[in-house]
Amino acid sequence: MSVSNGKDLRTLDLRYDCNLLQIWAKRAGNGGEFTVIELEDVAYSYGGAELFAQLNLSLAPGSFHFLTGPSGAGKTTLLKLCYGELLATSGQVRLFGEDAASLPRDGVAMVRRRIGVVHQDCQFLDHLPVSENIALPLKVAGREDETGNNLDDLMMWVGLKAQANQTPPQLSGGERQRAALARAVIMSPEVIIADEPTGNVDWEMSQRLLTLLVELNKMGKTVLIATHDLNLIRTAKNQVSARVLRLKDRRLQLAGAEL
């Protein structure tokens, strides 16, 4: 497992605590003994229309995947299947080896604590300050005692220390995305799923976010990013070994060399 020494982040003027990231990396590592998320012959229908069918996907621990495809192809739906917000119409979705369809309600909550999700629209509690939003996963898991220094380090890492007491509506698009990323990783999840994380930010900010995600992957986190930004994918492939999946015509394909 590779662990960043922090130099890359410092060049982007983002300070972070290397020790903290190493702790996360240790928690995440499992030697690749099983696939963390696996979809087998999965179909999903919405309102009687089949969005996709016979879809197979296997995410190994520490892998980095991009998911592309035209608008409306079902990228967000596929991501929701991957973190248990939706259940497949047919086929089987296994999350950390467990059949998602047979998970009890609290079991789904437990799975979500192992998967950090960055949404396109971020999904914050607007009445709480940014720091509390980022610490929310720890609170709901009853691990408030881990918040203290971890939160400070994490906020420095994503460059939001100064905005800690602001509420999400007071942040810019890029700041909101970085806050969402911080919230997604505060529980040290094994998997990071991001839905169009650079959709609402400029090129420079998208590069900063990508760098953060690549750093997380280098620490052993499994990363799955849905995006239609091909430039982002090309840039990432220069930094990390990433597979690109294309969702098109109701099927999932491995994208070719054009990317």
């Binding site: 909550a109 979500r112 604590r113 999700v117 509690l125 996963p137 709901v140 529980m187």
Partner: peptide, 16 residues
């Protein structure tokens, strides 16, 4: 409903 959705997404159980 939106608050509940966010809390669920970060792993909150129904009891919480």
């Amino acid at each position: 409903a939106q608050v509940i959705r966010v809390m669920r997404l970060v792993g909150a159980e129904d009891g919480y």
